[in-house]
Amino acid sequence: MTTVAAYAAPAAKAPLERTAIERRAVGEFDVLIGIEFVGICHSDIHQAREGWGEAIFPMVPGHEIAGVVAEVGPGVTRFRAGDRVGVGCMVDSCRACANCAAGLQQYCTGGGPVWTYNSIGKDGEPTYGGYSEKIVVDENFVVRIPDGLSLDVAAPLLCAGITTYSPLRHWNAGPGKKVAVVGLGGLGHMAVKIAHAMGAEVTVLSQSLRKKDDGLRLGADQYHATSDPKTFEELAGTFDIILNTVSASLDFAAYLSVLRTDGTMVNLGLPEEPVQIGLQSLFGHRRSMSSSGIGGIPETQEMLEFCAEHGAGAEIELIGAAEINEAYERVQASDVRYRFVIDTATI
């Protein structure tokens, strides 16, 4: 085992602090990664503050990991020392169920995936995430970061990128399709970039017009304020796909009204409290309400190649580890454009 420095939440809602954790020895099929950058995802905050229910503490968050391979086990065939790699939200799964066989490890039915942190690994030990110097991961859950992406802007793609790419691919975003993105934050700004790169017509639906210039610069064709009731009247029956990237309760009837017949609203954010949806909103135009969870390993690799080809890295604000707690507060206040990324050299 190896001792590495990390930042952890010692208890629910407690400030994160510098600590030391143990990483397992490199096994036959393991990859030891020297972490260089790790993104701060809103789900890190939900979990560190136990907003989604009981959690495991101490907790080392971080599932948007980019770094360089330092060592590989003797059975590893896909990577070697010096490779630029990433790790996302999962570090294992059953690998035997139909979903795992289809490359949909995020929907593993054989006990569920082993999450990168706040989970229990197959060895019975808690998993610790990327707010740390190094991590050891089975090669099957490591992806290659293309040379066309710098590691700092690639890190958020391991969650924000794949979480938006997967539903856009699944619901066939592309030329001739109209896509609305609810919220222009960490997820939303990547949804705009990716949908635009796919050739769709993209509209941002945000509470205000405060970020309109950014939205248009990132690839949106239109930008509307949802605080204006006329927005929903003007856009009624417009969109094929709505990607809801916010983790708050919405007036779902209003948003569903702007879908075309057979349109789908895909929810990516996960509010901490239950939400209510009137089924009347779905009748009449065969509209659908759905959701999507990250993406499997093959699709994550596909997404990275796509983003490299289209120059679609994340918009980031690079911070030192000592700024993590302040960054959490700023994320809660929507005061980031558009993803905080920790330089792990500062840990």
Rank of each mutant, 00 (worst) to 15 (best):
R95A: 06
A96C: 05
C97G: 02
A98N: 00
N99H: 12
G103C: 04
L104I: 12
Q105Y: 02
Q106M: 00
Y107F: 12
C108L: 02
G110L: 07
Y117P: 04
I120T: 10
K122N: 04
D123W: 03
G124F: 00
P126N: 09
P126M: 08
T127E: 13
G129P: 02
G130M: 09
Y131E: 00
K134Y: 14
V137D: 07
V137S: 06
F141K: 04
V143Y: 01
R144E: 10
G148V: 13
L149R: 12
S150P: 08
L151F: 02
A154S: 13
A154M: 15
A154T: 11
L157C: 08
L157N: 07
A160Y: 01
A160T: 07
A160C: 02
I162A: 05
T163R: 13
T164G: 02
Y165T: 10
Y165D: 06
S166E: 08
S166M: 13
S166H: 14
R169T: 15
R169Y: 15
H170N: 10
W171C: 05
A173D: 13
G174H: 09
G174I: 11
G176W: 04
A180K: 12
V181P: 14
G183E: 09
G185I: 06
G185N: 05
G185S: 07
G188V: 04
G188T: 07
M190S: 14
M190T: 11
M190R: 09
M190V: 15
K193N: 05
M198L: 10
G199M: 10
V202K: 12
V202E: 03
V202L: 04
T203M: 07
T203V: 11
